[in-house]
């Protein structure tokens, strides 16, 4: 009887492949899990776990040889985050951002405005202006290491020829950070240019047309049409450049190794020396936690801007 029933049921649906609804849902969820598994595994191993571990490491103080560590609770956080050394490093990083971000933004905007014209051969200029985006921090640093060289550097040659005193760029505590900043501005210029040019291209042509019809001159159009419409892009660029400044490492490592007199010892370089030169993992971790919160704040600001952008787009 039972068998007959089963056969009867099967024959009723013989021509079609049946799959129950609940099964289909479950299969879909499982399939999603399979697709997400590689990313989840990698993010867990190389982002979330180490983030928690960094917080945890901050609770342990290493002995001077980096061989063992003892639990000290928040003491180390308090020591490190309250130390002059850390404050100086933070100050240096802030100064570095101040040197690089506004200048880089203005130069990038200038280049983008220049390149946002319909002229023949513009594609070549645009390629040149964006070229530093493809330049690595190592390549850029070594180039500028030569340019800034006190004896053979072209920059000092220029200074001498125009009657200025040559400067020991990377060796002088006063000039080292500006020199590193100069390199960084050049390095970031391609990115800033690309982002701002793309922003310019999203401004509807009609706005300029109607401003022209209203009799606005080029300068007035720049300040009344272009810049206001561009402000979300500019804010985005500021945040990204600031985050970049706080994460800078390569140019410091190649140009100054944090010196002279710690004047270029930015926060990531400080983490690197504490963690991998002095074997003070706990100290490095505590600084890492501070960096995390700084970048987190900047990222959240960035998300806010991106959200607001939504209203401008489409």
């Amino acid at each position: 009887m039972r068998d007959a029933g089963l056969i009867g049921e099967a024959s009723a649906t013989s021509s079609l492949r049946v799959r129950t609804r609940r099964n289909a849902r479950l299969r879909e969820a499982l399939f999603a899990l399979v697709l997400l598994a590689p990313s989840i595994a990698l993010f867990s191993t190389f982002a979330f776990y180490p983030l928690i571990k960094t917080f945890y490491l901050g609770f342990f103080r290493s002995d001077p040889f980096g061989l063992s560590a003892s639990y000290v609770g928040f003491d180390q956080y308090i020591d490190v985050l309250g130390s002059d050394r850390f404050h100086r490093s933070l100050f240096t990083t802030g100064l570095f951002a101040l040197f690089t971000v506004p200048t880089g933004l203005v130069l990038g905007l200038g280049l983008a405005l220049l390149a946002h014209q319909k002229l023949r051969g513009m594609i070549i200029y645009r390629t040149i202006f964006s070229s530093t985006v493809a330049t690595s921090v190592a390549v850029a640093s070594v180039m500028w290491l030569t340019l800034l060289n006190p004896s053979i550097g072209i920059i000092n040659y220029g200074l001498k020829e125009t009657g200025f005193e040559p400067i020991n760029w990377l060796g002088d505590p006063e000039w080292a950070l500006p020199a590193v900043s100069l390199t960084t501005i050049w390095l970031n210029l391609g990115f800033t240019f690309i982002v701002i040019l793309a922003g310019l291209q999203t401004i509807p042509e009609e706005l300029h047309e109607s401003a022209k019809v209203d009799g606005a001159g080029a300068v007035s159009r720049l300040f009344n049409v272009t810049l206001p419409m561009l402000s979300p892009t500019l804010l985005f660029s500021v945040v990204v450049l600031t985050i970049n400044a706080f994460q800078s490492f390569g140019q410091i490592d190649l140009l100054t190794q944090g010196g002279p007199l710690d004047r270029t010892n930015v926060i990531v370089y400080s983490i690197y020396t504490e963690g991998f030169r002095n074997f003070n993992e706990g100290v490095a971790a505590a600084q890492g936690v501070a960096l995390f919160f700084i970048v987190l704040t900047l990222t959240l600001i960035q998300f806010r801007f991106l959200e607001r952008r939504g209203f401008y787009g489409n």
């Binding site: 997400l36 990313s39 993010f43 191993t45 190389f46 982002a47 979330f48 776990y49 180490p50 983030l51 571990k53 960094t54 490491l57 985050i243 994460q247 490492f249 990531v268 983490i271 690197y272 963690g275 991998f276 993992e281 490095a284 971790a285 890492g288 936690v289 960096l291 995390f292 970048v295 987190l296 990222t299 959240l300």
Partner: peptide, 24 residues
């Protein structure tokens, strides 16, 4: 929720986690 978790990784700079990652 999971998508937000994915996006959250953008807020963890590589420079912050180098020590545990090096250990791993």
């Amino acid at each position: 929720l999971l998508f937000v978790v994915f996006l959250a990784t953008l807020m963890v700079p590589w420079e912050v986690t180098i020590i545990p990652n090096y250990q791993t």
